[in-house]
Simulated assay, not measured.
Amino acid sequence: MARYLLHRFVQGVVVLALVAVVVFVVSRLSGNPVNQMLPENATPEQREALTRSLGLDQPLTTQFARFVGGILTGDFGHSHRFAAPALDLVLSRVGNTVALALAGLALAVVAGLTLGVLSGLRQGSHLDRVITAVVTVGQSVPSFWIGILLILVVGVQLKALPFAGASTPESIVLPALTLSVVPTVSIARVTRSSVVETLQMDHIRTARAKGLRTGELVRRHVLRNAAVPVLTITGLLLTEAVGGAVITERVFAWPGIGSLAVEAIAVRDYAVVQTITLVVAAAVVVVGVLVDLAYMAVDPRIRMTGAAR
């Protein structure tokens, strides 16, 4: 186990190093932030002075070395748009994004597992066809449209829940519902396929022949065997929710790193864009390790393979 964790740690470091290189190069190719920071009538001397103060007059190799050195010492740069350290700014927003992602994914797991298990157990029935139709519709509808619909109906007409900002605990409900739609569809489809496949296994047929009740059969055998692919898609969806909640955060004015990234990109705020990218990449690496550990806890065969590494 220790060797496996060390192996994954080294992999994570390599991934983050590659991400650092890519985000540094791409951010420099996106344009000069001086053009966004100064008015159109700024003099060449003012532009040159600001370029020097930001260190953009130095060679790219020097800029990259300074960028990497800052990361190693915990200095991710200073935001010229928000006049604050980039890391502090991102960390002040990342909690809101994580809370939204976890809330949306929790709703998706509950709804997706329920729909997938019911559909898989009743394969070919009217219930299966209805659930399949609902899942297909959910997959076809854009999430931002669902968010706007929830705002109009629940927020504006019914005035049941707040729909902008994060001023109260109830503010997370509508964006979490919006964010849960796509993951619910994915989890439901994977769960249904896993349940249908598991029900064809010999030990399941034996358990049924012995008279094991359906509820006990699902709890002890079906869900456990179907857990590995569900864990896979759930881990992927969690990283997507953390890194890709931009549209949902913008629709509901949710103060997370998605909306912060949009603002930073618009003004070429290199420090903030680079920090957000590295934080999300680190989250992806950590979630990947946690999913692998969950595999080992669920499936003894994977546990033995991991211990042998």
Rank of each mutant, 00 (worst) to 15 (best):
R301Q: 06
V68I: 04
F24R: 02
V279W: 03
A264L: 02
V182E: 11
A283G: 12
T277W: 08
V262H: 07
G12P: 12
F9D: 15
M201A: 15
T73R: 14
G256Y: 14
R301M: 05
P300L: 03
G116H: 03
V242F: 08
S125Y: 10
D269K: 10
V273T: 00
A253N: 14
S193N: 12
R129I: 14
L237K: 10
V222I: 09
R268C: 02
R220G: 03
A209M: 10
I146H: 15
T248G: 14
G306E: 03
S125K: 03
V110D: 03
L54H: 07
G12T: 08
S53I: 08
V10P: 09
G124S: 13
A17M: 04
T214F: 04
I302Q: 08
I233E: 00
R189T: 05
R52M: 10
V242G: 11
R213K: 11
D88R: 09
V117M: 01
L237P: 09
T206A: 13
V141K: 08
S143Y: 07
T178M: 06
L237M: 15
M296Y: 04
L29G: 11
V242K: 02
N225R: 01
V25Q: 06
S259C: 12
D292T: 07
A166E: 08
G211D: 00
A166K: 13
L56M: 08
V68N: 10
R66I: 05
A209V: 01
L238N: 07
G256I: 15
G256K: 05
I265V: 11
L150T: 05
L149K: 05
Q36S: 07
G235C: 15
A160R: 00
L115I: 01
T132H: 03
N225L: 00
E249Q: 07
S167D: 13
R122G: 13
L16H: 08
L260R: 12
